[in-house]
């Protein structure tokens, strides 16, 4: 096991117990009443969900950047997250979200629809440019339909619910959410691992990668499945949590040998750590209402993105 992986595991071993204790009310295992219930029913599922979603987004980001050979690529580019968000917003808009299981299922349907559309448009040729453009088109369409759903919301309460949900958060999530997201995310990371060799071959460009035995359509299949499962299940239980997939591979890359395959596991671990820490900070910050996780990560992510662009301009990447 290489050094970044060991360091990240140690950091996670420190961060997880701290996250369980952290919150508007810091838990004292000996003094807080009902500490076992709070831990088992609130803090633990929330922490596990943060780890699962972060791991999925981190690994997806690393895979996307490897596939597009572009440090600015993000899982959102495939249109799968907007697709999942559209599904969730539709369920809120139609009032189906009253049943707790329906919203995630609608979101997964949305993600599945985006994946199927992407595969149908771009899957035949295996070309990267067509694939990216198809993903952007799907993202744009899903975004427009989401806006339409918001504008057609039956009442102000539904509209507020949709907008709040889109901001992304892990507040009040339960074991049901963990049971939904964890297996799908793990399966998704497994799919991304299947793409690892193909991503390594792409370091040398498309033609050389094909000459090394990379099969473009097979690689696309694993990527669509991997990003679809990780991002789709993440959006289904937590809403839109942006920038993790963009930031994390950058933070980790200098500590690896920069081959995409070597970036997947550290990015998954670092993504898990980032979302866990960000969510814990959202709980701890002394604000009137809890800061939404999606907003917090965007507040950190957008300046980071800008920094990245400036560094690229100076040729440092």
């Amino acid at each position: 096991m290489n050094r970044p992986v060991v360091v990240l595991i140690v950091l996670l071993l420190v961060a997880v117990p701290l996250s369980l204790l952290a919150g508007r009310v810091w838990l004292d295992p000996e003094a807080t009443p009902n500490v076992a219930v709070i831990l088992a029913e609130l803090r633990l599922p929330r922490a596990i969900l943060a780890l699962v979603i972060g791991a999925g987004l981190g690994a997806s980001g690393a895979a996307m950047q490897g596939y597009l050979r572009n440090p600015l690529a993000d899982p959102g580019l495939f249109g799968i997250a907007p697709g999942a968000a559209l599904g969730a917003v539709a369920s809120l808009s139609f009032g189906y979200a009253a049943a707790p299981v329906l919203l995630p299922l609608f979101a997964l349907l949305g993600a599945g629809g985006a994946m199927a559309l992407l595969a149908a448009i771009a899957g035949r040729t295996g070309g990267i440019a067509l694939f990216t453009l198809a993903g952007m088109m799907i993202a744009s369409l899903a975004g427009a339909l989401t806006s339409l759903a918001i504008s057609l919301a039956p009442n102000a309460f539904a509209m507020s619910e949709i907008v709040t949900w889109l901001m992304g958060a892990l507040t009040d999530r339960s074991w049901n959410d963990v049971l939904l997201a964890a297996p799908l995310t793990l399966a998704g990371i497994g799919c991304l691992a299947m793409a690892a060799r193909g991503l390594d071959a792409l370091v040398l460009g498309d033609a050389a990668a094909r000459s090394l035995g990379m099969e473009p359509r097979r690689l696309q299949f694993w990527l669509i499945a991997g990003v679809g499962l990780t991002v789709g299940s993440g959006v289904a239980v937590a809403g839109i949590v942006g920038f993790v997939g963009l930031i994390v591979p950058h933070l980790v890359r200098p500590f690896t040998d920069r081959r995409p395959s070597q970036l997947l596991l550290p990015s998954a671990l670092a993504g898990a750590l980032l979302v866990l820490v960000a969510d814990s900070l959202c709980r701890v910050l002394p604000l009137v209402t809890e800061l939404r996780l999606g907003i917090a990560l965007s507040l950190v992510g957008a300046p980071f993105f800008l920094l990245l662009l400036l560094r690229m301009r100076r040729g440092l990447l």
Partner: peptide, 23 residues
């Protein structure tokens, strides 16, 4: 096969680059 453009997408070390030949 050695393409003309000689693209190397990420700034890998020479040993890692050469090791890609074993894929």
């Amino acid at each position: 096969y050695l393409p003309q453009d000689g693209e190397v997408a990420w700034d890998v070390a020479v040993r890692s680059l050469v090791a890609l030949g074993r894929l």
